[in-house]
């Protein structure tokens, strides 16, 4: 179950590259907020935020170099968040689709 391996030391260069990418994405997300995309602004902003979060999780939080149990744990957190959001929004967005008599 638990893999036995020596702790992986990530080279400093990797951290610098990830950090530079995060900074570039930050300025892209600020710039994109000023571009009129109508309803798509939020999708662009969230896509960039998710990319940044994935970079932090994989490299700064060492998940990329961790065992599979950590992958499952990190993935589960994300899946449950999606369930929380998707199911609630499915409810809110579909209200009023079917008319309830007397309401």
């Amino acid at each position: 179950m638990i893999e036995h391996s020596e702790p992986h030391i990530v080279p400093k260069k990797t951290y610098y590259i990830v950090f530079a990418t995060l900074m570039i994405l930050l300025f892209v997300t600020v710039a994109m907020a000023f571009v009129p995309l109508g309803p798509f602004n939020i999708y662009v902003a969230m896509a960039i935020a998710i990319t940044k979060a994935v970079l932090v999780v994989l490299y700064f939080m060492h998940v990329r170099y961790s065992n599979r149990l950590i992958w499952v744990a990190a993935g589960a957190g994300f899946v449950w968040l999606v369930i929380l959001l998707a199911f609630t929004l499915a409810d809110y967005s579909s209200r009023g689709w079917i008319k309830v008599p007397g309401k």
């Binding site: 997300t29 995309l37 939020i42 902003a45 935020a49 932090v56 939080m61």
Partner: peptide, 22 residues
Amino acid sequence: WHFVDIVWIFLFPLLYLVDRSH
């Protein structure tokens, strides 16, 4: 610490950058 950073990565566009084009 990185997790708290990730939370901010989401809060920033959600709160500060709600379509600033108009």
